[in-house]
Nucleic acid binder design. Structure first.
Lengths: 186, 186
DNA sequence: GTGCACATGTAATGTGTTACATGATTAT
DNA sequence: ATAATCATGTAACACATTACATGTGCAC
């Protein structure tokens, strides 16, 4: 339940928006803002099979699809169970581990919140996100100070700075996004 | 040659700095700025074995280590071949694919350039990095404009913005880093 | 009826994670 | 000698990538 690959979650989110085929999903990954996902058939079709086996998605009934023949276009849609899994995921709290290890998944989560959970959930998410991220950035700044006092300028230090600045950009984005959602909800 | 996992590259870079054991490397991953690497034995020891099998690293000869007994502390160091692989990697050009798919590897590369390649190589790297990243950000901005004209404010759009802002922070870091290295080289 | 794009399947390979097991070293 | 810590090994599992294979439907 808590161990879905980010690809599986992306598929659930996309199928929630609109029932579609594996091929459609591949085209989405190949051509849209979700291009950071691989569009290789070797990842997507097996992932769809896994989701189907858990009864989180189902193929639209098709003529001549009575037995084992799975060739030809198959349109998948979310089941009630699949929707529940998606919504549960969207509503989870943000942990330090999420910041450290699962940043892409956090952004995917936020992206899918749009019409699937109330605005208040998205706003709460951003608050927790800012909290956890701010604490982590503070830690990193301490590390940086410790490092820079011990060594002259070098590429390792610069690379570390790049990481910190990336997190800071994310933090500043979150604050802006939260203000923007709060404003809209007025 | 061009298909090393980022973990293997991290191990090569760290062993270049100082011969050390798998346990030492694990502690580095667990406690330093490289904490984005897993410190699990199940990843590190097999990776060291792979590098050893390719003769890129070698274990320091040890008393009683004559045959198959591999228990006890083993200190690894880079071989000449391993150093060559590391240096070749450090000197590679930056591609669009690197920006899209291998950003963490790019930062690792830059971090390890420090004493292993001339400053001019690091400066060239940053130039190519800025070039490729700038072009990609421009693409993303076009996508964003297309998206935002078609839809009202929503979390998907905001998430996409977050990605763009992350890349922009990276770009601005690169410009600063390049200036800083050029200044130092004066 | 042949060719091409659409649509899905899958085997081989490599690697990472988790969880557990085991040997070595040191302090008490 | 016993416990704790150091240090490495490994089996089971899941997943992604690549490359190839196969079927489907339409245009010409």
């Amino acid at each position: 339940m808590s161990t879905n690959s980010i690809l599986e979650l992306a598929l659930l989110g996309l199928l929630r928006q609109k029932p579609q085929s594996g091929y459609d999903l591949r085209k989405t990954f190949a051509t849209t803002a979700m291009r950071h996902f691989s569009d290789s058939p070797g990842s997507i079709y097996p992932a769809l099979r896994r989701l189907e086996a858990r009864d989180w998605i189902a193929a639209e009934p098709q003529a001549g699809n009575d037995s084992e023949n799975r060739r030809g276009r198959q349109v998948f849609h979310l089941t009630a169970a699949g929707t529940a899994v998606l919504v549960e995921w969207l509503g989870r709290p943000v942990t330090r581990e999420d910041i450290l290890w699962r940043m892409p998944e956090m952004m995917l989560r936020f992206a899918f919140m749009d019409t699937n959970v109330p605005r208040s959930t998205a706003i709460r998410f951003l608050g927790e996100f800012e909290q956890a991220l701010g604490a982590y950035v503070a830690e990193l700044r301490i590390d940086l100070d410790r490092m820079s006092s011990k060594m002259s300028i070098n590429t390792g230090l610069l690379a570390f700075q790049s990481g910190i600045e990336g997190f800071e950009a994310q933090l500043s984005w979150a604050r802006h996004a939260r203000a923007s959602l709060a404003e809209e909800a007025r």
